[in-house]
Nucleic acid binder design. Sequence first.
DNA 1: CTTGCCATGTAACCGGTTACATGATTTT
DNA 2: AAAATCATGTAACCGGTTACATGGCAAG
Lengths: 178, 178
Amino acid sequence: MSLPHAILTALLEKPSSGLELTRRFDKSIGYFWSATHQQIYRELGKLEQAGHIRALPAPVPARGQKKEYEVLPAGLVELTTWVARSEDPKPLRSSLLLRMRAAAMVGSTGLRAELERHLALHQAQLDEYLVIEARDFPAARPRPEPDRLRHLVLRGGIDLERFWVEWLTHALAELGGE
Amino acid sequence: MSLPHAILTALLEKPSSGLELTRRFDKSIGYFWSATHQQIYRELGKLEQAGHIRALPAPVPARGQKKEYEVLPAGLVELTTWVARSEDPKPLRSSLLLRMRAAAMVGSTGLRAELERHLALHQAQLDEYLVIEARDFPAARPRPEPDRLRHLVLRGGIDLERFWVEWLTHALAELGGE
DNA sequence: CTTGCCATGTAACCGGTTACATGATTTT
DNA sequence: AAAATCATGTAACCGGTTACATGGCAAG
């Protein structure tokens, strides 16, 4: 049940329409909780019904017309209690690790190319994160808590990509020429 | 579309019944592709229908009776081609990172306890992996390829847990007393 | 002969994914 | 006025989750 809270967070940062949310998900919150525009519209409807958000009054409400949403006090309460809520981490699901395990049974033919492809993807994502870090979090400390928290989140993304890059590099070396 | 291939791999390692598979998932393949017994029975049905596996003939087939499955040649082909197949990594989904991002907007009250809980969980998982590594992969190299691949998979799990342990430790330090 | 466990399932639901539909606005 | 783009949606599907049902078998 994380998507509604992802949306509440995004709307708190800045009231937005569905499409704007979709775009911001693509380059920010979506880095660790992605969503398509269909999901977002569906969820906005539910959140409005629940009284957690409301559509800002539009001059002429109509289909195909932009609708801006903002968070209501009830939504703020919901998000605040959710932050303190406890939830187990979902078990890992990696089809790449699974593939490697299968390769141990049926041979690793063709696996190398896939590892190289993933390495490039993770390296690219890492580079993207590092650019954001340099832009949004230049040296200078200490910082106010909100900034520290946002930086920690980004750090998580960075270190996770670094893990993949290192593991894939190691795996390719270990696999040897095929 | 990974579950069927996880099952094929497990059945190649050793022909099993549905419940046996469920148990083996809980302590091996399930570390990176978990499944409940309902999923497994459903998938076994599909795989049998597709001609990828077959139930070994039982003396008295009946409901509530154990059914052993084995992989058929078609299943082996399917798994082999799947290993070489290319598939993008699913985008990361971490409700913990999301929670921290929300905390940057509404305050981090109650977050510390959750971080500590996750730290303990990941530390426990890491310890479990390390025991398995010591048991199944004692020093001595070089090794045949299948063993190298299985060890790489386990290494992935280990390094991933290490990442979480380190990041959570860092986050707790950075968060400071609350 | 009841309790508990082994083993195989069915049913309902839910979030995420993919494909498509529709209206409004801007560009050419 | 046709084409492209912005913006909001509907519908169908699919894998994973939760709750429950059913039968066989062994222990006390």
